[in-house]
């Protein structure tokens, strides 16, 4: 039921929402989170962000995260898309959709999915700054805290 995809190219949010709801009328709401590349970090201008991942493990981890959401909420479908390769400021990095009969499940599942995706899927970001320097993004404690609010390891 979950759609899980790692891709280089841009995603079409409208098309993904349409695909999630295609041919059914039992969905009462779809939660949506879109992560995008910012043009600065720590006060420095960013010209590009490169996403690296662990092929094979990534897809398994994403499928497991989707399954965990489906076990917690009565979802009528969910979509997890994550881009890899070199991205520019303003471009989408990640898309999370969760469909349910009622909004609370859709919104909660969307929050859960992005929190777990940020802390449990093997992706790494490298920023390139306007002065040509590059640096790997450090993991943020705030992301672990956000993921922990959903409770035990799954």
């Amino acid at each position: 039921m979950a759609t899980v995809r790692v891709q280089q190219g841009a995603f079409d949010i409208g098309a993904e929402i349409a695909a999630l709801g295609a041919g059914r009328a039992d969905i009462g709401g779809i939660g949506c989170f879109v992560g995008t590349v910012r043009d600065q970090a720590h006060g420095r201008a960013i010209t590009a962000m490169t996403l690296e991942h662990y092929p094979g493990m990534t897809e398994q981890a994403m499928a497991r995260i989707a399954a965990a959401a489906e076990a917690r909420w009565a979802l009528l479908g969910c979509t997890l898309l994550h881009r890899v390769g070199e991205l520019r400021p303003g471009e989408g990095i990640v898309l999370v959709l969760a469909a349910a009969a009622h909004r609370q499940a859709a919104l909660d599942a969307t929050g859960f999915l992005i929190d777990w995706l940020k802390t449990r899927a093997p992706f790494w970001k490298k920023e390139r700054f306007a002065d040509g320097q590059e640096g790997w993004v450090d993991a943020r404690e705030a992301d672990d805290t956000a993921a922990a609010r959903w409770g035990a390891l799954g």
Partner: peptide
């Protein structure tokens, strides 16, 4: 066996 930094996707 894979070794890597803490993940930073999303």
């Amino acid at each position: 066996v894979a070794f890597f930094p803490p993940v930073t996707g999303g």
